[in-house]
Design a protein around this nucleic acid. Structure first.
Lengths: 225, 225
DNA sequence: CCAAAAGTGTTCCGTCTACACCCATGG
DNA sequence: CCATGGGTGTAGACGGAACACTTTTGG
């Protein structure tokens, strides 16, 4: 069968990753200096091209793996960015994804190899092309998601204190929360379990360490923070 | 400057439109029988390919215009759909958009030319490729948007009764609403204005016609339905 | 005259918010 | 012994949900 496809034009398709981390009570993203033209030297998200033999989601996962060596990372699509001149070199449409990773799990060697850095999301430098817009949208989506889904735990260590969890939500939403009200809500969620372990890093008294029990959480559990 | 782009592969990029309408107290979408191979004869969204000289958003608007002859339609991106074999003929990545139009504004001739039909969203037939998935996601996004933004009016005539508005929200959310509570909320929104006109179609007594005053609405107005 | 849709307020209950003090310990 | 962060309960405000009857008029 002859096809109608031929009359149309193919386009370069790429993916860009907005990688969120949480450290020092601040929400951060992983960006680096662009190592190729056009835009060499500008701050930029990490990205890659979509191949013909992989889905766009796969391309995003592969790209993230290249950068971090990590598999099974929480990742969601932000959307397609398709202005004609968004890439000064060629027509490239890019699909943005955001990822949530634990900063401590990220191999520092790989970080140096790729010359990427964690930067405070409140202090982002100007970024290449439309990457800033991508970050804004990603952040909006992520904030929305965190309100009703227990995805924040992707950013925290397996064991965390309630204060850490609260600081995370404060960083994401950009506002302080009331400690007692926050902890009251946590207590209502049986899938956030107190462990026998105590963290002595952050205070003299020591704080109980909690963990998120994925199995105990089911989609119909209600999660609101 | 020689470029690194050449080592990568180009891909066909298309757009698909989920076109919502509201008629007979039901939420509907516009679909047609696919007129080309592969998939000829299957129910399908209306779509088109993205050209090199237009943005993806522009391609979506152009495609919608081809089908409906309408400009300045409310349209939002749903996301990119990029499975390798989503199109049986060729590798095609598609970006889905949803649109909200007034059924009455849609020229019936054009509808016949393109052989598309309004079908009740609750009674959708199986669709070509991943189009059903696109519709589900579009509906989810649209429902979300309608909760906090006054976009429902895009689906209603300029002048509408409060019962029509309520039926729209009921159709979108799939649940009945309390008439008094609903009307109380409407009364709090000054930008939904009662007119002097009366609709005599739907009842013997007659119902006041309202209209949404875009100018009176500002982004900081709070809208919750 | 009656069927059919329009229009209109109040009460109750649960949820969210504000708010202050004691505890344990390392240095 | 004191500075630091951990941990706990209550009262009042607010918003959402439930709920029933009168009005108008075309047929």
């Amino acid at each position: 069968m002859t096809s109608f496809y031929f009359e149309h034009q193919k386009i370069y398709l790429s993916v860009d990753c907005i990688i969120f981390g949480f450290d020092d009570n601040k929400l951060k993203i992983l960006i680096g200096r662009r190592q190729m033209d056009p835009g060499r030297g500008e701050w930029s998200l990490y990205g890659g091209f979509v191949r013909n033999d992989e889905s766009v989601d796969e391309a995003a996962n592969r790209t993230l793996f290249e950068l971090t060596g990590m598999h099974d990372v929480y990742m969601r699509q932000v959307g397609a960015f398709g202005s004609v001149n968004r890439d000064p070199g060629e027509r490239v449409v890019s699909v943005a994804y955001y990822a949530l990773i634990k900063v401590k799990d990220y191999d520092e060697k790989l970080q140096k190899t790729h010359e990427v850095e964690w930067v405070d999301i409140e202090k982002m430098p100007p970024l290449f092309s439309d990457h800033y817009e991508m970050v804004l949208q990603a952040r909006k989506l992520m904030r929305q998601k965190m309100k009703t889904n227990p995805v924040g735990f992707e950013l925290l260590p397996e064991l965390f204190t309630l204060t850490q969890l609260q600081r995370l939500y404060e960083a994401v939403n950009g506002e302080e929360l009331d400690k007692r009200n926050f902890r009251k809500r946590i207590k209502d969620m049986d899938f956030i379990e107190k462990t026998e372990y105590i963290d002595k890093q952050s205070s003299k008294r020591g704080a109980s360490l909690y963990h998120f029990n994925k199995r105990a959480f089911s989609e119909d559990s209600n999660f609101k923070l």
